[in-house]
Design a protein around this nucleic acid. Structure first.
Length: 292
DNA sequence: CGGGACTCCTGCCAGC
DNA sequence: TGCTGGCAGGAGTCCC
């Protein structure tokens, strides 16, 4: 799933179709995603105007009219498709049919559908169903269990080398695991952790507590740089992820180590080979020769 | 409490 | 061609 850059790309893709627009009808095609959907979920969304879209870590927050927030996590395979004029009723002669003219929203894994008042159909699909949605009062947003423990936004002002250093202090876990923990820094996932560690020349096996001010400086910069570049590239496209418009991000062509097992290390002057190992059940890619 | 293993679900791909 | 096992961008829960 999408990590921070992919989620940000999705947010940007959805914004023009949702912000300031009303949901004429929401449809839920199953009672649960990863978790049970809230009571009367579709009913409560129907007729509501979306004020604005925000991203926090890997979450998309749709602030709704009426002081409620639709919280969305894409999990591993969640995606939104936007179909202009795809809603039933958008085309004369097609009124009150559940199926859009182009069939959008009828796939096995099309779980949630938003028919906007301008006729745009927005379809949420998620074949692995690790994603989820919730509907929560605006006032309790910061107390929400999904959001409360999140670490600093790596692209925000609250993140710095000093903050990172503080958050790694005393932690015996490998730095790779510490960075995947959303309480350390919010929004990183397997790809960008591998890439940031490579850029900063830090071994994924190094204990988090052994990161000093200098390495923290390099690591914080690498995290910011790699995320920024990935967002500019429209995210990374693997297997089952695509942007809202079906276009593909292209940052995957810039991976230095992720999924590059056996490849030559791209660091200038390094003759190492990219290695794959497994840490807490997840693949780690790194160059043993220049990452220390 | 910190940290690691296991789990949820489905699809795809390599290898036999 | 068809089956099987392994793997996938996440993260909550359980257990030591």
């Amino acid at each position: 799933m999408p990590e921070l850059p992919e989620v940000e790309t999705v947010r940007r893709g959805l914004a023009p179709a949702l912000e300031g627009r009303r949901i004429a009808r929401a449809i839920q095609r199953r009672p649960n995603l990863r978790y049970m959907l809230p009571e009367r979920f579709a009913e409560r969304l129907t007729g509501r105007r979306v004020e604005w879209l925000e991203r926090r870590a890997k979450y998309i927050l749709a602030h709704l009219e009426g002081e409620e927030v639709l919280l969305v996590h894409l999990g591993m395979s969640g995606r939104f498709g936007i179909h202009p004029g795809g809603a039933p009723g958008a085309t004369p002669g097609k009124f009150h049919r559940d199926v859009a003219a182009d069939g959008a929203g009828t796939g096995t894994h099309d779980h949630i559908i938003f028919d906007m008042e301008d006729g745009t159909r927005i379809v949420y699909s998620d074949h692995r169903r690790f994603g989820f949605m919730d509907l929560i009062p605006e006032a309790s947003l910061n107390a929400n269990s999904h959001l409360a423990a999140l670490g600093p936004e790596p692209l925000g002002n609250e993140f710095s080398a000093a903050v990172l250093l503080e958050r790694l202090k005393g932690r015996r876990a490998p730095i790779k695991a510490a960075l995947l923990d959303q309480r350390t820094v919010a929004g990183l996932g397997n790809i960008y952790v591998c890439e940031a560690l490579f850029r900063s020349g830090i071994s994924p096996n190094r204990q988090a507590l052994s990161i000093g001010p200098q390495r923290s400086e390099r690591l914080a910069r690498a995290i910011r740089d790699v995320l920024t570049e990935a967002i500019e590239a429209g995210g990374s496209t693997l297997r089952d992820y695509a942007q809202t418009d079906g276009e593909l991000g292209y940052f995957q062509h810039s991976f230095a180590v992720y999924d590059q097992e056996g490849g030559a290390c791209s660091k200038a002057g390094c003759s190492g080979t990219v290695k794959r190992t497994v840490q807490s059940g997840r693949s780690t890619f790194y160059c043993p020769s220049c990452q220390r």
